[in-house]
């Protein structure tokens, strides 16, 4: 498209240069502002450490051998909580999407419960399961279940009825129909739901690690707040971003792998 909102196409190299310049510019601006704050004594410089101080804090934590334990703790909670949520959501979502009678009962109930922000239920989880791993993992499962369940139901419900007809007239029996047509046809949307769930896991793990945890990146942030260790707070936040980014990349790779048929080379 030469003519339109996007304007004339920007050459790849120029686009790349602009993007790199933007990142460098962002880091430079950050450094300059934090340097200026320190030099001009605008406010206490511990509030805004430069990027290198943040990186330094992470390196120091890693050198002391503490960082790894926190990362693993967070990852473990996300992995267990999210995969439990995914298994439950898909396990319930497929039949609920397929059988209308089931859907008519389950859907309105879910629709009524869904507007309650998951975070509002976190204290209840702590009251029920205690402050340990159980409440954190259980909370991620709870928070990720709804969106993944709803996308699964939607996927099964809105698949092309002609696909089902085509398979039936080729002799597909109900079980074959389910595994060979409904599941693969719903897969793209289910995988989108899974990617959403991964993002949501990292979204909510932080706050449950703020509240009574002894390990984990969220703990590191909250601990930093109590002792004004701003570099540690920012470092842990960036690390969480990196983990979330990686999680998203893995989910996308899975989509590309399983959905190669959507845009084969």
């Amino acid at each position: 498209m030469e003519w339109g909102l996007r304007g004339p196409a920007v050459a790849r190299r120029r686009a790349l240069r602009l993007k790199l310049a933007a990142i460098v510019g962002f880091l430079a601006l950050w450094s300059i502002v934090s340097g200026a704050v320190a030099a001009l004594k605008l406010f206490n410089p511990i509030f805004l450490p430069g990027p290198w101080v943040v990186l330094g804090a992470l390196v120091t934590l890693a050198a002391k051998g503490q960082l790894w334990g926190h990362v693993v703790a967070t990852l473990e909670r996300v992995a267990v909580g999210f995969s439990t949520g995914a298994v439950l959501a898909i396990g319930f979502g497929l039949p609920v999407g397929y059988f209308r009678a089931l859907r008519n009962v389950v859907e309105p109930v879910v629709e009524l419960l869904r507007p309650i922000p998951p975070l509002a239920m976190l204290p209840l989880f702590i009251v029920w399961v205690g402050i340990g791993e159980g409440s954190k993992v259980g909370f991620i499962t709870y928070a990720t279940f709804f969106p993944m369940f709803l996308t699964t139901v939607h996927a099964v419900r809105h698949l092309d009825p002609l696909l089902v007809r085509a398979a039936q007239s080729l002799g597909a029996r109900p079980a074959q129909l389910f595994f060979r047509v409904i599941l693969p046809a719903a897969l793209p949307e289910i995988l989108t739901g899974i990617r959403l769930g991964v993002a949501l896991s990292f979204f909510v793990i932080v706050i449950s690690e703020f509240i009574g945890a002894e390990r984990g990146l969220g703990y590191l942030i909250n601990d930093g707040r109590n002792f004004f260790l701003v570099p540690q707070m920012l470092g842990a936040a960036v690390l969480l971003g990196l983990l979330g980014y990686t999680g998203n990349a893995i989910a996308r790779a899975a989509e590309r792998r399983f959905l190669r048929w959507q845009s084969p080379s």
């Binding site: 790199l20 706050i207 971003g241």
Partner: peptide
């Protein structure tokens, strides 16, 4: 210019910045 900066900050769960 905006895209990479936003893509850099966006994966960080917002609640991590709350403190």
């Amino acid at each position: 210019m905006l895209e990479p900066v936003i893509e850099f900050v966006r994966p960080i769960p917002p609640l991590a910045f709350l403190p």
